[in-house]
Structure formats: structure tokens, C-alpha cells
Amino acid sequence: MFCRDHAVQLHRARAELDRAGEVVLIGQLTPRHAAHFRRRAELTWPVLADEDRASYTAAGAKVATANELFGPKVVAKGVQASRRSQVIQTRTIGHAAQLGGVLVVRPDGSVAWSHMSEDASDNASPQEIVSALHGGAETATAG
């Protein structure tokens, strides 16, 4: 649910994001899964498929505990997300406890900003990402 909600939020901010920089999404499993997700979420950006999750490890993403996946805070935010984006949780495809996050990288390869998810409900907002792309954000890491 959070994954599709996040995609919906990003899609709604696509004009601002595209003006600010490049955007690429990375998911698990295969190009076929990536294509299905991209089509269903009506995304226009590339969606990459990382079957062995090597890039998740390199980005410093973590695997959630049960509480970070199903705890009361996460469930409550899930209900809000479902109402906001009119999406429902569908079958989980990929490692269910793998969390994601965002890195904003400058052309010199330095990381300008990061927000790696602390639990399943923790996603960077499109506005935060736009701000980071514009270079207006200080380097900050969730958690």
C-alpha cells in the first residue's frame, strides 16, 4: 500500500520533480514486475529491477522488524495512505520486509540528501525530494 501510495504521490508531483532533476525508481525482482508496477502506477520514469537487492544494500536500506512492518503506527498510517491515494494493498511482490528510501546524488557523485525508511510507512515526500534536487536541503538522514 505504501509503495503504491508513494508512487501516486510522486506521480502527482512529476512536473516539479522533472524540472528539478533526474528521477529513477528501483524495485525488486524482474523487469516484467517493474513494467507491471510502472504501468499500473502510471509512472513515466524508468523503473529498474534489482533482483538480488544489491543496490538496496549499497544505499544503506534496511530490513524491517515485524513491528516496523505491522506495528500500530504503521497500520494507522496505512489507513491514511489508503484514503489519500485511493489505493489498497495488493499482493506483495519481493522481499516483504525490505525497506526503501531515497538518495539525491549530485553530478560529482556526492550524496546531497538521503532519507532511508525507518519503517514501512516512512517515505520521503515529493516536496522533500524536489527541495533536495534543487540543492536546498541539508544532508539529513532519517533515523
Binding site: 533526474e22 529513477v24 528501483i26 524495485g27 507491471h36 539525491v104 553530478p107 525530494i129 533536495a132
Partner: peptide, 14 residues
């Protein structure tokens, strides 16, 4: 390479 980039790792495709 040319512009700042946001790399967004999704939890999963669900």
C-alpha cells in the same frame, strides 16, 4: 552524470 538525480528505492511492487 549531467543533473542531480533522485534514486528512489521502492519497498516492493505491491
Amino acid at each position: 552524470r549531467d543533473r542531480p538525480a533522485a534514486l528512489i528505492w521502492l519497498r516492493h511492487y505491491g
